[in-house]
């Protein structure tokens, strides 16, 4: 903050900052406090007495097989979709990184899935996959495949595929935008040195693009870990609890079982698990250096 002009606006900074202070106090700081605090109480819709229960909500959550299964599913799901979307997005970005007929139209079309609400995407997926009137079962039937897409052994790959369908355009966009600020002279130098295409990719492009790829991986991972909308609309976490993510677990604990204390404890545990990553990410994402800007 070298640009700070301390000479002017000693009062102005508080005037201009006051809306944020007011909002952050009521709608950020207080909810954070209440979110953590609620975990220590037996607050539920059935029990308005609110007894202090200490750490018992936390031990209940941590020993709940449902919570552990949700944590496991969420992490595996997030890793799978992030890996696939990063590789596919990178490939697509390389493919798009030249002039070809129709580029503008396709670029626009690739942006559309990112813009559509995940919940509405869930509705459209249901329409597409519906056993009676859906396009996908009809086409599969046409080639002699009759399977239930939402059966226990197909539902997880299906959800991974649908996530890849919606979010590969996002990793593509981030990596493609990064490619636009790629130093051309480095490529020419590599070429003069006689490096082939794959060699150039591995030894020049990937190292320089690392911060961008890291940003894409990280943003997808964070969003995939909090996945809620599409899966909730499609399966509501089922069959059974097979596709219950952490977010769905917390939502159901709070608003279907009415156990606010338990849900708040689970939220706090999730937050504590993520907090150690924050400084690292703030440092690498917010100040990634010139190469990534």
């Amino acid at each position: 903050m070298a640009a700070t002009t301390a000479s002017r606006g000693a009062a102005a900074k508080w005037v201009l900052g006051s809306p944020l202070i007011l909002f952050a106090a009521i709608f950020v700081a207080y909810p954070v406090y209440q979110g953590i605090q609620t975990g220590f109480f037996g607050l539920s819709l059935q029990n308005p007495e609110v007894p202090f229960t200490g750490l018992s909500n936390f031990t209940t959550v941590l020993t709940d097989p449902g919570f552990l299964a949700a944590a496991r599913f969420t992490i595996l799901f997030a890793l799978a979709v992030t890996a696939l979307e990063t590789v596919l997005g990178f490939g697509l970005a390389l493919l798009m990184n030249r002039q070809f007929p129709g580029k503008r139209v396709f670029f626009t079309m690739l942006l559309v899935p990112i813009m559509i609400a995940p919940a509405l995407m869930g509705v459209m997926f249901r329409l597409l996959l519906n056993g009676d009137i859906g396009l996908v079962p009809a086409l599969l039937h046409g080639v002699g495949i009759d399977i239930s897409l939402f059966a226990p052994d197909t539902v997880v790959p299906l959800l991974v595929l649908l996530d890849v369908l919606q979010w590969t355009p996002f990793t593509f966009l981030i990596i493609y935008a990064g490619l636009q600020s790629f130093p051309t002279d480095v490529l020419e130098a590599a070429q003069i040195d006689g490096a082939g295409w794959w060699r150039t990719l591995g030894s020049v492009v990937l190292p320089i693009m690392r911060p961008i790829i890291f940003a894409a991986v990280f943003l997808r991972l964070i969003d995939a870990i909090r996945t809620f909308d599409v899966i909730y609309v499609l399966t509501a976490g089922g069959p059974g609890t097979k596709t219950t993510t952490m977010s769905i677990y917390i939502y159901k604990t709070a608003f279907e079982s009415g156990q606010f204390g338990m849900a708040a404890a689970a939220s706090t545990i999730v937050m504590i698990a993520l907090v150690p990553f924050v400084p690292l990410l703030v440092k690498r994402i917010v100040h990634p250096g010139r190469g990534a800007a």
Partner: peptide, 22 residues
């Protein structure tokens, strides 16, 4: 600036219960 970045990383579901109560 740092708090803004950090907040964007935390899952929104954490705020579901406190926002409902608030």
């Amino acid at each position: 600036m740092n708090a803004s970045s950090a907040l964007r990383l935390l899952p929104a579901i954490f705020f579901a219960v406190p926002y409902f109560l608030l």
